[in-house]
Design a protein around this nucleic acid. Structure first.
Lengths: 238, 238
DNA sequence: GAGCGTCTATTTGTCTGAGTAATATTCGCT
DNA sequence: AGCGAATATTACTCAGACAAATAGACGCTC
């Protein structure tokens, strides 16, 4: 009972996976490193072997480690990691993520989200348009500093991706959502308060509502580019 | 010891996760369904509770199920699934994947790969160019019907993504690679033999080697579009 | 001395059975 | 009818044993 780390609502195996995951993505355990054997490791963590093993299964499912008899559990090469797994990404952001990763994620956003906005403009239903409007209104009222505002922001982007009717594309949302969360977090630490992002959001909305694919692409491009610029500023600061 | 399914080199927990994963993505277990409790399920499968539990941890790590005390293990809604997880995708393709999923994946390829090719053209190193050339030469010699040829095809696409220097983007490769594999599989079943894809591949290569971003984007666009068209044909057949 | 099969020790993998913790449901009380 | 406590069900955690796989050492053969 020595206060397991981050013991929120996570189970024991989950919190161990969490802890180990962070230690891996932050470089505390390098690729190629072999973790101590199950018995030793579980004893050091003061948990049963089963709990530890279930944690390892979780990490293995995300590509972070690989277990083999007689060898042990080895941290895999980074190119085998499932970087688009929501948990893995969250673990990256928990420890300070490498600059290259953040830039890579925004580059991916710049590729995917404008294209998604264009598809959404062509395929969105009326109900989806209304849901988007509502999200933006909440966002406008609550402001980006509040939890409700940030949540509405994420909802909006998720709604756009859902409106594409493309499940794999929408699946990127959780990934990208994590990036957005991180950005807004660091934004709030900056003295120079960021420009109001609402006009850009409404521009995206208007184009999607009007069924204007090209306009939606352009508007989303502007939106993500600004977000990216602010993240770049935040990266400068440290 | 009643011949576990797909008992290749997978461990017991892995093969159970595999089997259950396929049953879930193929709709045999619908979202919202609750799996029988651990004791009953593990007894039905004739395995220990630990093996079954580790399998469930794997599925939970990929977002397919969710376990809670007093409720059981429930299949989650599809929008929570990690569709970009290589295993999940492989499970989809093992059972016949829904038409919408295949189309969605190709749509995603059409968005991502041309953009990636453009980035690769700007950033590739000399060594990467040589590796790409080699892959295409192997592909040319071995032909697409052989395992070596298909492997070289995958290598080429992977190399292009690696050359972007963008890790999250490259992480999409395993996903997209799975799609490519599936396409070539069904292509080979079609009577009308598909057009020779080598010229398109060389066009992509030439543009990347020349550092021509726009040309690389265009060439990759053509390549993926053709692949998509062939997949569409294959979908027609069934 | 080189190559090849065998043997062994180490590690993960699997099994069993017990007890704990969390929580949806039920029941009784107000 | 609403609310609070008891209950039953389920996953969760633990402990200890045995099985299977395999990297590396060893010894044998030629």
């Amino acid at each position: 009972r020595p206060g397991r780390r981050k013991a929120g609502k996570e189970r024991l195996h989950g919190s161990i996976a969490h802890q180990l995951g962070v230690e891996i993505v932050s470089g505390r355990h390098q690729p190629g490193d072999i973790l101590s054997n199950e018995i030793e490791f579980s004893e050091r963590l003061q948990v049963s072997r089963s709990a530890y093993r279930e944690a390892v299964r979780i990490l293995a499912a995300k590509g972070l480690v690989e277990s083999r008899p007689r060898v042990g559990t080895r941290v895999t090469e980074m190119n085998r990691w499932n970087l688009l797994d929501p948990d893995v990404l969250a673990w990256f952001f928990e420890a300070e993520p490498a600059r290259a990763l953040v830039e890579g994620l925004f580059e991916l956003r710049m590729i995917v989200e404008p294209a998604a906005a264009a598809l959404a403009a062509e395929r969105r239903t009326g109900a989806q348009v209304e849901a988007m409007r509502e999200a933006l209104q909440i966002m406008e009222r609550a402001g980006l500093k509040s939890e409700a505002g940030q949540s509405a922001d994420r909802d909006f982007h998720q709604l756009v991706l859902d409106a594409t009717g493309n499940a794999p594309l929408a699946s990127l949302a959780s990934t990208i959502g994590a990036g957005v969360r991180w950005t807004t977090f660091y934004k709030s630490r900056k003295h120079k308060l960021p420009p109001d992002p609402m006009p850009e959001h409404w521009a995206v909305f208007d184009a999607i509502a009007a069924g204007d694919a090209g306009g939606a692409r352009q508007a989303m491009d502007v939106l993500v580019a600004n977000s990216r610029a602010q993240a770049a500023d935040a990266l400068e600061d440290r």
